[in-house]
Write a protein that binds this DNA or RNA. Structure first.
Ligand SMILES: NC(=O)c1ccc[n+]([C@@H]2O[C@H](COP(=O)([O-])OP(=O)(O)OC[C@H]3O[C@@H](n4cnc5c(N)ncnc54)[C@H](O)[C@@H]3O)[C@@H](O)[C@H]2O)c1
Ligand SMILES: NC(=O)c1ccc[n+]([C@@H]2O[C@H](COP(=O)([O-])OP(=O)(O)OC[C@H]3O[C@@H](n4cnc5c(N)ncnc54)[C@H](O)[C@@H]3O)[C@@H](O)[C@H]2O)c1
Lengths: 230, 230
DNA sequence: CTGGCTTTGTGAACGTGTGCACGAGTGCCT
DNA sequence: AGGCACTCGTGCACACGTTCACAAAGCCAG
């Protein structure tokens, strides 16, 4: 077998920016714009123009010197490279606060990630309908994944249940996971995991706030903060 | 006065990992563990042990050679560096699907980010109560930010309204923004912005799925089972 | 007190990402 | 047709991040 050796590898940093370019290009296309320069795209994406050119060069030489990039063609190429030429159904595990918001959010389906199903372990949640999808029991997960050919799972369970959810997803055949629970998942190497951790994001913001306030005031006296023993 | 304090600057990559270490250390403390090695912490955080040591070294030399780190003391130091010695109230803009899920989620307050208020532009949403907080009109935002001394704003409006929300937040005095809308915000340099874009995350996963499928059509389910531990 | 064992803290090598600068095409205008 | 203005594609240097490897530092047993 010939593995992906010969295939162009796109740097992670670039892969994470391509979706942003894609969205902007789609917006521009809707506005009737059919050509854009690296500088124009860079402006809209909030990045450096050279970075845009280098990023796009990994896809191939699809620009025209002296002119710029054809918006429609670029959209096509990026979608192709990101594997967005067909839908990727996702399954959501956990029909709580967050799971409901995700299921009720139409933006997924629009962008090529229809909710193939949502499952929960709590019998009392099973049967209710969220965003047009009936909540099923988690035991139906393997069947759901197979029949709908789901590759991507979303974990929206409490932290303590997240590893269990991940194990079930992997066993069911899912190979990519988007994890909203604040835990580090342990999965086989071949499984791609991305996490979205709001607490981490807020704490990073906190760090910068604290830094700004570094020399200045010490506000808010009524803070908590548990004194450390020992 | 000298604006540039001689304060240690911590690399971004490290700042983004400190919250993860912090959570794990907290869990370990609750389990009664009071000392941990870089290797142990690395294992739990899913990173390299040398990285843990280097990260922690930016805080100072708080480990004991031959022994490890005192969990309680390390928690204190990380909290201190991240500015978590006091609460950071946040304001949520947009009381829709996502805003409601966020407001109803207790995890924020527990981790030091109490919801100081939630605002919406839609009169019909104003007045309803979410997670113990009454939804207010967005015109009350400046007053809310001032009286509650809010530094951090969360944007949960539709994409088209996100820039408006950002402008209002900045005008009201907020200096850090967590943005859930899929748009690139334009804000003054001094404002720290972090974004959480689910579509981007899913598209990155899509890229990797497409890559896996590059040679063979559909991967075999259940062929894995090699738990990754380090 | 010494020797052996453990683990930290960090210099150095290596890898990845960023941005400048400029040659190389392309289209337009005269 | 020729010159000119424009923009892509990319080599190169530098910054940042990761990992290795090991001396320094601490603990403990005897
Ligand atoms: N709600 C938010 O806004 C928000 C924000 C940030 C992070 N999160 C994280 O997202 C996760 C979900 O949050 P939430 O507010 O929706 O919690 P929730 O308690 O409202 O919902 C969790 C759901 O998961 C189900 N569940 C529990 N164990 C399960 C299992 N083993 N398999 C399948 N389903 C299981 C529960 O029955 C429940 O319906 C949490 O980890 C939380 O930290 C939520
Ligand atoms: N719901 C999800 O699970 C989810 C997932 C990913 C991303 N998002 C993003 O989060 C954002 C919100 O999603 P949602 O599902 O909650 O949308 P929503 O339509 O349910 O809620 C948006 C709310 O914002 C309010 N609003 C509109 N313009 C405003 C303004 N100028 N100022 C203040 N409030 C205003 C609306 O009245 C509404 O209540 C969107 O950008 C969406 O793309 C949502």
């Amino acid at each position: 077998m010939a593995p992906d050796r010969n295939r162009r590898r796109i740097p992670d940093a670039t892969v994470s920016r391509l979706p942003v370019y894609l969205r902007i290009l789609g917006e521009q296309a809707d506005l009737g714009v059919d050509s854009i320069s690296s500088e124009g795209l860079a402006e809209l994406a909030g990045v450096n123009a050279a970075k845009v050119r280098k990023d796009l060069s990994y896809l191939g030489s699809y620009g025209t010197r002296g002119v710029g990039y054809d918006v429609g063609y670029l959209v096509y190429q990026i979608r192709r490279e990101l594997g967005l030429t067909h839908d990727w159904p996702v399954v959501i595990v956990g029909a709580g606060n967050l799971g409901q918001a995700l299921a009720g959010y139409g933006g997924f389906g629009e962008r090529g990630f229809p909710v193939a199903g949502i499952v929960d372990i709590d019998e009392s949640k099973v049967g209710s309908v969220l965003g047009g999808t009936r909540v099923r029991h988690i035991d139906e997960l393997p069947q759901l994944v197979q029949t709908k050919r789901v590759n991507i799972g979303v974990i929206a369970t409490p932290a303590v249940a997240a590893q269990d959810a991940a194990d079930r997803l992997v066993k069911a055949g899912v190979t990519s996971i988007l994890n909203f629970a604040p835990v580090v998942l342990s999965v086989p190497r071949a499984i791609e995991v991305r996490k979205v951790d709001l607490a981490v994001e807020l704490q990073i913001l906190s760090y910068h706030e604290q830094r700004k306030a570094g020399g200045a005031i010490h506000a808010v006296p009524g803070a908590n903060g548990r004194p450390v023993s020992a």
